[in-house]
Design a binder for these strands. Sequence first.
DNA 1: TGTACATCAGTGAACGCGCGTTCACTGATGTAC
DNA 2: TGTACATCAGTGAACGCGCGTTCACTGATGTAC
Lengths: 248, 248
Amino acid sequence: MESEVVTKSGPSRRERLRAGMVEDIKAIARRQLVEQGPGAVSLRGIAREMGTASSGLFRYFPSYNDLISALLVDAYNSVAEAVETARDARAPKDHAGRWFAVCAAYRRWSLDNPAEFALAHGTPVPGYQAPLEVTGPDASRTIGVALDVYASAVTAGAAKPARTHFPPGIETGPLWRAIIADRAAEHEPRLAAIILTAWTSVVGYLVAEIFGSLTSLIDDTDRLYDAHVRTVMAGMGFRPNLVDATGG
Amino acid sequence: MESEVVTKSGPSRRERLRAGMVEDIKAIARRQLVEQGPGAVSLRGIAREMGTASSGLFRYFPSYNDLISALLVDAYNSVAEAVETARDARAPKDHAGRWFAVCAAYRRWSLDNPAEFALAHGTPVPGYQAPLEVTGPDASRTIGVALDVYASAVTAGAAKPARTHFPPGIETGPLWRAIIADRAAEHEPRLAAIILTAWTSVVGYLVAEIFGSLTSLIDDTDRLYDAHVRTVMAGMGFRPNLVDATGG
DNA sequence: TGTACATCAGTGAACGCGCGTTCACTGATGTAC
DNA sequence: TGTACATCAGTGAACGCGCGTTCACTGATGTAC
């Protein structure tokens, strides 16, 4: 299994070709996802487009489900990276700006990658259920970023949970405690409640914009999202002057 | 085509049997929707469960798509009725209470009818695209109720758009103007923006609770939703004392 | 450098499945005189 | 009340489709001596 010769370095020729092939397959699957929607991704369709025998794809993915899982993991990590980059582009002390940037990057990524967004947030491919042990950690990366930014803001006094409508002691569940374990554990419990509902508001907006009829209901969706994010920020207890002043 | 004899009244025996059959088919389809998820609803599956030939179903629905459309229309009207009933159970002048009741009824209905909720908000059945002329008016019924309640609140001074983060003149699209046409047309434009984003926040929460992992992240989702709705209300410019005082 | 063997990539046929839809048909139920 | 015809409900076989997956196979590419 392991490479025994350590001559030059890195992957062998075969391994490189193999990795390239895996990437090609995923790229075509992504295109099918965009163009035909989820549920239209099929191994046979991919093989057709690649000009190979459909049975050959089983050399690269042991089953159809594994392909979908790989796409999901890629999507989760792609959006997480986009969001992390946006966060890091702002000064660590600009807490409101960081939150705003995270939300903006999340929307940007979603509009640019509607297929991956659909995969992650739509009803999944029929018959497919994401194996939690595969997608769990990757799925929680983005909300983890959101939590970190918010928690820092709270610590610094830029946001005050007491200003929200959330009761202090609202109970978190086991999965949340697992996520938060290796992060700052001293947060008061309601941070979970606040960040989660805030995030559902943001995602709900994007679902409406990307899947739904929002675009035909409102012309200027950029300004709409801007106002929406500010509203959410206010609901999270960000200081009012920060909510108004933070620029896009 | 039209019934020529007006003897006693109403539908003939055949028509009653027919209507009953249509209801049976839809009931089984709904069950399949709940138990196997969307994408698992199939005419053959329904026929199997009914013990009839699958070809016989074409007497009742000209095609598979028509079945799905019928389920969708039913779902839209069912939730709209639930929401209207909840609204009317509160005094017309209790604007905040009405909004709160509408949100509560919407969640109640969604938790009670996850299949229909999935049909309306998930990525639809693969290969199915809702014909807008069929589902449009029914789909907009519920948001219409939300709009009415909010508009009344604004007129009565219980909510002030000026207190929100939405600019006054944000442009609405053609579809919105079509919906709003026969309703109070003198609303300032930003009411559309406010109500739509507020609604995406509410729906986004429910999507997370019903499809997603929210339930494993937070234990007390009743209180969570309560706080979420209050947060949304504050973001719509409801008077602070109303937001806090309104009871569930 | 050349030979012998193992590993892997890709092929093409086949299996079994479930689907929506059509069609000619048999009976039952209704309607007209 | 009885007869003749039209309408509708339900049947069962068939069509054509696309799918995931398996399997024995042919060549190519790598590795060991």
